[in-house]
Design a protein around this nucleic acid. Structure first.
Length: 314
DNA sequence: ACTAGCCCCTGGGAGC
DNA sequence: TGCTCCCAGGGGCTAG
């Protein structure tokens, strides 16, 4: 599940390869397959709008790439920005692709990695959008469940677009200190901490994996009400948040599921899970005798240790 | 303010 | 081998 560390890993890769490249073409299969181009969001919801998108980006150069929350922003020389949200199963792949057009009498119109392209991993085969660049390489948007979105943001609308305007502060910003963290979280005093941490409008970029991990580390039950959390616990949770997100980035993200970096390679954070997807396993906290369990919180699975992550008692 | 529930979507795993 | 059923979940949405 792409969360902040996975999106950052992708953006770190894009920063190295995209700036200066001119976009020559854009292809999608979403135009010919039902249910059309919902992936291109409001402004680009049908083929006509995809053609507008194409017209807007072809011929411009990539200036820079950045991350905001779980969104990838690719800034273009025409002062527009391509916004990509990977949602659950999306990732971007950079390298050489070849287009296959015909097979067994049927018109096929798909792309596959060339030998020197991104790794031909089974999870890298769901290609739905391909950008072609002036250096002969491609950027492919791969997304098995097709939840991801591609949008074009016009000049001056980055601050006001609905995709970004309500997003909370970046947890790894130097300026984002314990006091600000606490104030943001406490805006939802009756909320359950797991839900509040994953609310993008409170803090940006945290999803199911990293919220489970930071709560495990700080010894807080995922259903704990925010108003019950002590200052001491806030400090632990804040430190755990920074640690776990930085660790995720340094390990190249989490590839327990289908996330891959832009070269098609796995990250390694999944090898360091303490809670997420460890239901039934012994808690790895030294001295703790708990067994990790799974419950549903806010419609999402939450994994935690019932021994060292107890609910506050009244 | 908050929650539950539904929806988008489809590969993969379990069960038969 | 192949069928059916269920699950995963980010985020948008509605209804309560």
């Amino acid at each position: 599940m792409p969360e902040l560390p996975e999106v950052q890993t992708t953006v770190n890769g894009l920063k190295k390869v995209l700036p200066g490249l001119k976009i020559l073409d854009v292809w999608t299969d979403l135009a010919v397959k039902k249910p059309s181009l919902r992936h291109f969001d409001d402004t680009i919801k049908n083929l006509n709008f995809f053609n507008i998108f194409k017209k807007e980006v072809i011929g411009s150069k990539v200036v820079s790439a950045e991350r905001r929350a779980k969104n990838i922003l690719i800034n273009l020389s025409n002062e527009k920005t391509i916004l990509i949200h990977l949602k659950m199963t999306g990732h971007l792949l950079y390298g050489k692709y070849k287009k296959t057009t015909a097979m067994a009498g049927q018109v096929k119109n798909e792309w596959e990695p060339a030998e020197d392209g991104p790794l031909n991993d089974p999870y890298n085969r769901f290609i739905h959008v391909v950008f072609s660049f002036s250096n002969g390489k491609h950027l492919a948007f791969c997304d098995s469940r097709k939840f991801g979105k591609v949008t074009l943001i016009k000049e001056g609308e980055l601050k006001t677009t609905k995709h970004l305007k309500d997003i909370g502060p970046e947890p790894l910003d130097r300026n984002f200190d314990l006091k600000k963290f606490k104030n943001r979280i406490k805006e939802r005093p009756t909320g359950r901490i797991k839900n509040v941490l994953m609310d993008q409008n409170i803090i940006a970029g945290i999803g199911n994996i990293y919220s489970d991990e930071m709560l495990w580390m700080s010894g807080i039950h995922p259903e704990e009400k925010v108003r019950n959390i002590t200052d001491e616990k806030f400090k632990k949770m804040f430190d755990a948040m920074k640690e776990v997100l930085k660790k995720g980035i340094s390990l190249g993200g989490d590839s327990m599921s289908d996330y891959r970096n832009i070269l098609g390679k796995r990250g390694e954070f999944q090898l360091h899970h303490r809670a997420y997807q460890r239901k039934g396993e012994k808690c790895s906290k030294p001295g703790c005798k708990g067994v990790i369990m799974r419950i549903v919180v806010g419609g999402r699975s939450a994994h935690f240790c019932p021994v060292h992550q107890k609910l506050w008692k009244h």
